[in-house]
Amino acid sequence: MISKEVFNKRIKTDGVNIELGPFSFNIKTTIPNAIEEAYINYKDHEFLDANKFIDFHISLERPKGIRRWIKPNVEFYFDGHSPFKPLPLPQAYPMLEWGMNWCIANYGHYFLIIHAAVVAKGNKAILLPAPQGSGKSTLCAALVNSGWRLFSDELAIISLKDASVFPCVRPVSLKNESINIIKSRFPDARLMPSVHDTTKGTVSLMMPGLESVKQGNCPAKISAIVFPKYQLEVNGKFEVKDKSQTFIELIQNSFNYHVISNQSFNIAGDIVESAYCYEYIYSDLTKAILDFDSLVDLD
């Protein structure tokens, strides 16, 4: 574990080199709230020596000129290039996280990348593809607080060689109501202070557990693809989903399926072929946790 002093010094100068599963980032910033939150989230991660190959060089900077003082902003940079519009300064740390997603989704074409949460027990991973607002992050947070390994709440990173899925252990992004749901259900969960008025509403980042971080380099096989659907007052259950339909919905949730073309077609086919495919309709998190536990035990 890196000390706060060393971390603070490095992030302001040469940057900190963090390994996140198959990707490495060099992160630089002098913005105090971003440094604070980055330290809390990444202090237990693997830090790389200065002589290691780093995939992405990113930084958060405050624009010069008038916006430094009046309605202060923050900008995200990928190796000197700023791909997004500036955001208000309090959103500095979430912006860093979104920026990291952007780097992976835009430059990680040596993996098939799907917009999905991924959790695992042992070396059996479950993919939860779902668009925004489907409740997947809440479900993911609940599972991760109940003995499941977090791979990611946003990005399934799938090898084009053997269809295994890689972790990229970072905070889980909780939005709006789910913040309170998780806080009350799991009082030991470590949540960062909420940030308001983002484009996604109120956002709070939940830190991954230490176990997930420690196993941050261990890939797994996808044993099930589950499409979660939150509905009021239903009794949670798995409904078998057609594989051909699963395939189509899986690639519709992909960031770069169309870029990689036939290679990704083959890998997506392999995954769907060998995984159990379900829809999971639920209203109760406790039942959901039990159901998911039995899903992997079945195998």
Partner: peptide
């Protein structure tokens, strides 16, 4: 064309157009 058969349907990728279809 790239074709993949499942027990409940078939998916096909058209390398020329980049489109994927379910049949």
């Amino acid at each position: 064309l790239f074709i993949r058969c499942f027990s409940d349907g078939v998916v096909v990728f058209n390398g020329a157009t980049g489109d994927t279809h379910k049949l």
